[in-house]
Simulated scan of single mutants.
Amino acid sequence: MNAEPNFSAQRRLLIGGAALGLFSALTGCSTETPVNLSGLAVQNLDGKPVELSSLLGKPTAITFWATTCPGCVEEIPHMIALYDKFSAKGVNVVGMAMSYDSLNQLKAMVSEKKIPYTVLQDKTGAAAAAFGPVRLTPTFFVLDAKGNIRYQKIGPFDKTRVDQLLTALTSS
């Protein structure tokens, strides 16, 4: 009998798991993992606190972004399109700025890009921690009305998939 571990099988499992993780990160995944939004506050562009639990009760499209992130700036027109299509159907569309963006930078970007959706700042990093933690921008999520993550994606989100998901979440 061979009592030695089968490193080849272990290696295949490890590589397969890593590949699945990378595939999920690149394509976006649906998890239905709840995010605990209670007691979690961020700030609006006036520096006033906003409780993230206020997002509950409606589907939410939220992107963690930064004004200095080229991919985040490229994502803005897609976020505006989501806002234009789904805000009247009750979807919260939110740009959650990372802690290192100043309110002045955010206000300038909102004005320059004519951003109609809600922009908040995660000044303490607590929201980024609650969502993952979020370490890279852009990182995009769709939450259902109960605050469960239904889709998450690092990098550009799949516009067709998100459109279909938000359509399904607003027609139930």
Rank of each mutant, 00 (worst) to 15 (best):
L165W: 09
P156C: 12
W65H: 10
G28M: 14
W65Y: 14
D122F: 01
G21Y: 15
R150Y: 12
K159T: 07
Q152P: 02
L22G: 11
F64S: 13
A129Q: 12
S24F: 03
M96G: 04
N148E: 04
S102N: 09
S53I: 14
L103H: 00
D101C: 10
L55N: 13
Y117A: 09
T31N: 00
K159M: 10
I80W: 02
L55Q: 02
P116G: 02
E4D: 04
A168D: 03
V42C: 04
R161C: 09
D46H: 07
T139H: 14
K153V: 09
A41M: 03
V134Y: 12
A97Y: 01
L40M: 04
L165K: 12
T137G: 15
A126T: 11
P5F: 00
E75Y: 08
P116W: 01
K107Y: 11
E32I: 08
V73A: 12
N6K: 15
K146W: 10
L20P: 09
T139S: 13
Q152C: 15
P59F: 12
G47W: 11
F141L: 04
A19E: 14
F23T: 08
P5E: 10
P156T: 10
N44T: 03
A9W: 06
Q121H: 00
A130K: 02
V142T: 13
T118P: 05
S99M: 05
A88P: 03
C72Y: 05
L52S: 08
L40R: 02
V35Y: 01
N44H: 11
D163Y: 10
L165S: 03
A127F: 07
E51W: 11
P156S: 12
Y117C: 14
D84N: 05
C29W: 04
A9D: 07
L56I: 03
L26A: 06
P70Y: 08
N44G: 01
G21H: 06
K113M: 11
L26I: 15
Q105D: 09
D84F: 07
K123S: 12
T33N: 15
T167R: 15
T27A: 13
A126N: 08
Q152G: 14
V94P: 14
P49C: 03
C69K: 01
S172M: 06
L56S: 00
I149G: 00
C72S: 15
G125Y: 11
A18P: 05
S24V: 15
D101V: 01
S38P: 03
Q164D: 10
I76H: 05
P49F: 03
